[in-house]
């Protein structure tokens, strides 16, 4: 086998896909006169095929019930992404009604953070600054085979700890299974099953507004507006605090419609997208 390294590499590579015609020719010529490489090829082929046998260890018995328990808590579809429409929200009575409704829809029973232990865990113990690298996504081969645009059809009902689901004019809360019909679309936002991005920025949450609410200029720099390349929608990158403040304003103004999508990432970055 002295000097056979290159051939060994080709023998291995040929198990995974075709070689170039030159490599193929050279390897075959070598194999014809090297018994060691013939034996090697036979062995590696056996090994390669062995991987289609069950390769242990078998799954522990608690895996299946564990998965199904979490499945029962989660409707199919992207996690913790839902949309809602704010018309108005007036006074304490409405707030109380919402809190009551939230409790009954189950959100307030799960503190934020426990719903996504893997994210919290990944950040734990890192000094400040490191958390800016998103733990669960990154540029990564995080390719779900199909990434999809968020549309009303793909929004799901799942837990959303920090935000209000839906509120209507009379202050009653939809303790419902079906989310209210959305009037806005999150076209500028992309959701790939784990992370939300707006024009390439990974964000924790995207709020789409029919227009900026009055007073928005006190929360964000209006001239810091950016434009999404594909949809040409105007958007702002904001902190969670800014997003919360904008949502408060939007809720208080009847002529502003808002839709919210939240991912499980914790980049600290959020986006506000204007409907165009």
């Amino acid at each position: 086998m002295e000097g056979c390294e290159q051939y060994a590499e080709w023998i291995s590579a040929r198990l995974d896909g075709p070689l170039s015609p030159e490599e193929e020719r050279a390897l075959n010529a070598h194999l014809a006169q090297c018994p060691d490489c013939q034996a090697l090829e036979k062995d590696l082929k056996t090994l390669h095929e062995a991987f289609s046998e069950p390769i242990g260890p078998p799954a522990p018995p608690e895996l299946l019930p564990g998965v199904m328990e979490r499945v029962r808590q989660t409707a199919p579809g992207p996690r913790r992404v839902r949309r809602y429409q704010v018309r108005t929200l007036a006074g304490l009575a409405a707030c109380l009604a919402i809190c009551f409704g939230l409790y009954h829809s189950g959100w307030l029973r799960v503190p934020p953070g426990t719903a996504a232990p893997q994210s919290a865990d990944s950040v734990e113990g890192l000094p400040d600054g490191v958390t800016t690298a998103p733990p669960d996504s990154g540029p990564a081969p995080e390719e779900m085979p199909e990434s999809k645009q968020i549309s009303p059809a793909s929004a799901s009902n799942s837990d959303l700890p920090a935000y209000i689901d839906s509120a209507s004019v009379d202050g009653t809360v939809a303790d419902d299974v079906e989310p209210p019909e959305a009037t806005l679309s999150l076209r500028a936002a992309q959701f790939d099953g784990a992370s939300l991005t707006v024009s390439g920025h990974e964000v924790d949450a995207v709020c789409t507004l029919s227009q900026l609410p009055q007073g928005a200029e006190e929360i964000l720099q209006i001239d810091a507006a950016l434009q999404a390349a594909e949809t040409e929608q105007v958007y702002y990158l904001v902190s969670r605090e800014q997003l919360d403040a904008l949502m408060d304003l939007a809720q208080a103004q009847e002529d502003v419609e808002a839709e919210l999508a939240v991912s499980e990432s914790e980049t600290g970055l959020c986006a506000v997208v204007l409907q165009n």
Binding site: V71, T74, P76, G77, P78, R79, M144, P145, E146, S147, K148, S154, S156, G193
Partner: peptide, 8 residues
């Protein structure tokens, strides 16, 4: 489970 709607 969550990605199923997108699985073609």
């Amino acid at each position: 489970w969550q990605g199923l709607p997108a699985f073609q």
